[in-house]
Design a binder for these strands. Structure first.
Lengths: 223, 223
DNA sequence: TATAAAAGTTAGACAAGCAAAACAAAAGTA
DNA sequence: TACTTTTGTTTTGCTTGTCTAACTTTTATA
């Protein structure tokens, strides 16, 4: 049985893997992801190594073992299913779900997770557009870019957000965006990479930082 | 913000209060309720006293303060709402709900509890027949006896169980009992207080221990 | 009422989880 | 190559929650 804390370390490692594509993670990187000191992380990584959940050697990089990855996926699955539950069944707003799901993801009961999954009709995506790993631990991948990578003149569809913080999400809503929104990149300011985008016929100017936190796909299918 | 452990101590104190009617609790009694050593409980009670959640002095008895009781009721409310949710919405069985609710009761989100309450239609009783405190912290009381207090020849209605353990609950089901079951006490063995009871026309012999864990009411209303 | 049993307390220990400060290694750069 | 910055490690120490073992107070009873 893993502790609350151990589960969070594994989840953070998996998230770095998924978001950056790199399997190897440094102590400092992980520490900053978890808002902890590198010293703290170094201690815990040694414990996780003892439990065969990560591969690691002195001054080396951290990778998840097969078992560690499996555990991490379970936590991520629970997190995203709970978010979906809160959003779909309890009318929580987009920006409220994350905080509560952070707690709910540590509840130990395979039956509970599977029943919630069933109640929700086995959803593939959570309210932020992120993929929910299925009961077998499989994670679908999607060819997605961030909004700032789209060339001016092209259109795309928003599929997910990178940042889950309340201020960001509330801003997203204010700009008229949500999962599946169609976005046209009108122009890009060369100086600071500010973007002018068009959403539902309305133009907005957003920063590069904002655009880097919006995931989009470019093949817009006729619906 | 109270820790997981502190909440469990408060809940245990409240449960002793509700089940025995006595407001004063001893260190050993609490320790046995929590399956901990008296020394451990003694330490923690001092911490809870510092936080003004319990009244206590050396060699004296423990009582909940107004604030302590309020917190304890919140935990109990969450526990019983989650049990009801698992039973009603996720098809958990009677004996499965307790364990998972022990974890869920510590989730910190007032909104979550209230929404679950709403989703369930503001239930008054949990699957074990226990009263669910309402959002204001009020606990309805019911004039109930244990089955072993019923005189032979009389009938009664089962309203709750005292023991939440899986073996007990599975045994209850096996005897054909559930919340609202009508029970006739046919006879009582003077030697060991074994009871012969009749449920749905079938006679069963049950021990005094069993009967002490079944709560009943005697005024059977026409339904 | 003396004494044994029950109930409660204290002291000392340990493990988990965290962090500050000092140190060591690796990488980048002039 | 030498110096500096970044990255990683170790040491030491705090806090929380638990335990065992030894001790003290209260209570029940012979």
């Amino acid at each position: 049985m893993l502790s609350f804390t151990e589960e969070n370390y594994l989840k953070a490692l998996l998230k770095i893997n998924l978001e950056s594509g790199q399997a190897e993670v440094g102590t400092n990187e992980l520490a900053s992801m978890l808002s902890l000191r590198p010293a703290t992380v170094n201690d815990m990584i040694k414990k996780l190594r003892e439990k065969k959940l990560v591969n690691y050697e002195r001054y080396g990089k951290i990778t998840l073992t097969r078992d560690g990855k499996k555990r991490a996926i379970e936590v991520l699955r629970k997190h995203r299913l709970w978010e979906t539950f809160l959003y779909e069944k309890l009318s929580f707003t987009w920006d409220e779900v994350h905080e509560v799901a952070e707690q709910l993801e540590h509840i130990q009961s395979a039956k509970l997770v599977d029943r919630i999954d069933e109640l929700l009709g086995f959803p593939e995506f959570d309210p932020h557009g992120d993929v929910i790993p299925n009961a077998k631990g499989e994670i679908k991948t999607r060819i997605q870019k961030t909004l700032d990578e789209i060339e001016p003149g092209k259109s795309c569809k928003m599929v997910a957000v990178k940042d889950n913080s309340t201020p960001f999400l509330q801003y997203v809503v204010k700009v008229g965006l949500g999962i599946s929104s169609k976005i046209k990149v009108v122009s890009k300011q060369a100086y600071d990479a500010n973007l002018v985008i068009e959403v539902k016929g309305v133009k907005h100017t957003v920063s590069q930082k904002f655009a880097q936190n919006i995931f989009v796909v470019t093949e817009i299918k006729a619906s």
